[in-house]
Write a protein that binds this DNA or RNA. Structure first.
Lengths: 93, 93
DNA sequence: TTCCTATTTAGAAAATAATCTAAATAGTTT
DNA sequence: AAACTATTTAGATTATTTTCTAAATAGGAA
């Protein structure tokens, strides 16, 4: 649940795409899997990592499991990145 | 050199610590290695990845190689993270 | 030139991560 | 209950990453 998990989670392109998909609305696991050329079990594995990192939440409905984005977890990452912006570098914003 | 490389680079705790070290001033490869319980060759490998990601620059002086932080590369990452902050989430800032 | 010192590169080994197949779980519908 | 649908879990396999040892490079000092 620490920043370390967040960064690990978003270091994988598949997981980033999942987050981007969930940007607009929640999707069921199967719907998410349909977007990738991967087995459902594999996507389920990625969802588990995202969930562990706190980047998504799940909600059961019927026999579906809907996943939703939780971008608030990025706060620590943003803080860390900004902390690296010292006053000596040539061309940062 | 894309965001993908940046995120891969900072997904490793050793590399994050290296960046934190370089926050204040440039250090020679050997000085950086001294901060870790790892072989110099291993640290050199991490420096190579950070360099490839554009997160550090190098400058030769005598037979030392000084590494310096380049945090400007984070711009894309910040943009991506912010793009995930849609208007529907409960508690983001 | 020969000897140091700093660092990287090459290649192998160890550790971790991503993917697949097959089986298990769980809730729905009939 | 039995059959169906959605999804996860277990275990094996493959791929990628991290680390190490040993050798190579390169520049400075004797």
């Amino acid at each position: 649940m620490a920043m370390s998990d967040t960064l690990k989670a978003i270091s994988d392109p598949v997981r980033r795409q999942i987050l981007e998909l969930l940007k607009t609305k929640p999707y069921a696991a199967g719907e998410i899997a349909a977007h990738f050329d991967l087995k459902q079990a594999t996507v389920s594995y990625h969802l588990k990592l995202l969930k562990q990192a706190g980047l998504i939440t799940e909600r059961k409905e019927k026999n579906y499991i809907y996943y939703d984005l939780n971008a608030s977890v990025f706060e620590d990452v943003l803080t860390w990145i900004y902390s690296l912006g010292k006053g000596g570098n040539d061309d940062e914003r």
